[in-house]
Design a protein around this nucleic acid. Structure first.
Length: 255
DNA sequence: AAATCGGGGAT
DNA sequence: ATCCCAGATTT
């Protein structure tokens, strides 16, 4: 849930989710339509599918438990480099290199001396992150939490609270005089209005609200034109987020 | 390496 | 209007 979605928006959904499906086995047994409705508008609904697939994989491969080793974690649906490292550190107290958007920013500033990290993670970044993680399991886990919190609460993207920063005296960005972001000109703001993402979101919103299959005409307003709605319906079906019934109507996938 | 994939709160 | 968010997956 936290992959690209702010904590404040995730927390209530997460609590309700765990109350409804306390264990991987519970989520594995749920209907996918119910899962997508519970996901509501957290965004990137494919993550909801991956999460349920992950629960089913945990049941089938790991007896319903979460594994603690890197390889097994990375093999789970929806679990990438960050999530595997985060689970190892926060769930198991093991050493791992946890590099999320917050940590990237902290290291870019404190170590790299620049305002913001590159648009996409680089090998050099990971090398730096690895080098600064303590060797001890417990210390490394604490480091992961601390570096993320520092980025989330103090070393923020917009208005960093440098006056309250515990490491301001060793911050390379501060020492350099807070230079502006060097690749600000290359940053490309993601479009939204009229995009397929918006159209897909609208289609799913209709299907979440409907508790009976929906006719194609009821989805006409979801996009800028018929071709877009058609294209998005197709991609949603391919993604497994929408099911096309034999009668031509659409619904959230059962299963 | 680049594209794609949501949505909302803050500025 | 733009920015930004505890990224992953596919091409």
């Amino acid at each position: 849930m936290l992959q690209q979605t702010p904590v404040v928006r995730v927390e209530p959904a997460w609590r309700a989710w765990l109350e409804r499906w306390p264990t991987p086995a519970d989520l594995a047994a749920a209907s996918t339509a119910d899962v997508l409705r519970a996901w509501d508008r957290l965004g990137y609904p494919r993550r909801a599918l991956r999460l349920q697939e992950c629960a089913r994989a945990l049941v089938e491969r790991h007896g319903g438990a979460v594994p603690d080793d890197e390889t097994a974690l990375r093999a789970l649906p929806g679990v990438g480099e960050y999530t595997a490292a985060a689970v190892r550190a926060f769930a198991f107290g093991r050493r791992s290199v946890v590099v999320d958007t917050n940590v990237r920013r902290v290291l870019a500033r404190a170590v790299g001396g620049v305002a913001l990290p590159a648009p996409h993670p680089t090998a050099a970044e990971r090398a730096t992150a690895t080098a600064v993680v303590p060797a001890d399991d417990a210390e490394a886990a604490a480091w992961a939490a601390a570096s993320m919190e520092l980025g989330a609460l103090v070393c923020t993207a917009r208005s960093p609270r440098c006056g309250e920063c515990p490491v301001r005296d060793l911050c390379a960005w501060r020492r350099a005089g807070f230079p502006d972001d060097e690749h600000a000109h290359r940053r490309r703001t993601q479009a939204w209005h009229g995009t397929d993402r918006q159209c897909r979101g609208r289609i799913l919103a209709v299907l979440r609200a409907a508790h009976a299959p929906v006719a194609h005409e009821e989805l006409d307003g979801a996009g800028t034109d018929d071709a877009q709605v058609e294209r998005c319906l197709g991609s949603l079906v391919v993604d497994g987020l929408v099911a096309r019934r034999p009668d031509g109507r659409y619904a959230l996938p059962t299963g």
